[in-house]
């Protein structure tokens, strides 16, 4: 009797372990932070790219419309790929696009803007990468869709036509 209980327990245990490992095989082993939505945007202050003035975040995201914060750098290749997509959003009146220039040299960033166009209404500087961390980003590019001081959607990696149409459907 005692033996039977032990056998049942052992069988259950190994089946359980097997199932878990089986399940684990299907999960990706590269960690990405969750696309944590509906979070309040962080408060920070940063210098602007062209005017070199200190601005506070409260004065940037203060209107009742959609904002798109795009973290980019001239040295980042995927940023070049996604740039045309961001340019395509530029004319949308309900949306204001803010750039956060991440760990870049001003000269290179300027020529990037001159070559590929400037979709941003404002570009903020993040020379040491600390502001990106306030936003919960860990690389470039990352993009945040913001409405009423809340992050509605977060895109890790370059934007593509799919994410652009998603953004468009949000701001309709």
């Amino acid at each position: 009797m005692k033996n039977k209980i032990i056998i049942t327990i052992v069988i259950f245990f190994f089946t359980f372990v097997f199932l878990i490992f089986y399940q684990g095989l299907n999960n990706s082993n590269i960690y990405k932070p969750s696309n944590s939505e509906n979070k309040i945007i962080p408060k920070f202050s940063a210098y602007t790219f062209f005017e070199n003035k200190l601005v506070k975040s409260e004065n940037i995201f203060n209107q009742k419309k959609f904002y798109l914060l795009n973290i980019w750098a001239s040295w980042c290749l995927p940023c070049r790929d996604e740039h045309p997509f961001i340019m395509s959003l530029k004319e949308n009146e309900k949306l204001e696009i803010i750039g956060l220039n991440y760990k870049d040299k001003q000269k290179n960033a300027k020529s990037f803007i001159n070559n590929y166009g400037n979709p941003y209404s404002k570009i903020l500087l993040d020379k040491d990468g600390t502001k990106a961390i306030e936003w919960g980003a860990y690389g470039v590019p990352e993009t945040f869709l913001i409405f009423e001081n809340q992050i509605i959607k977060k895109y890790i990696g370059p934007l593509n036509s799919e994410s652009i149409s998603e953004i468009k459907s949000f701001i309709k």
């Binding site: 097997f18 490992f21 089986y22 684990g24 095989l25 299907n26 999960n27 082993n29 590269i30 960690y31």
Partner: peptide, 20 residues
């Protein structure tokens, strides 16, 4: 490749399934 670590190995779920 069920775990990630500093030591990277090419991995393939089919192989994992077989060993499992």
């Amino acid at each position: 490749g069920i775990l990630n670590s500093v030591h990277t190995f090419a991995n393939d779920p089919e192989r994992g399934l077989f060993i499992l």
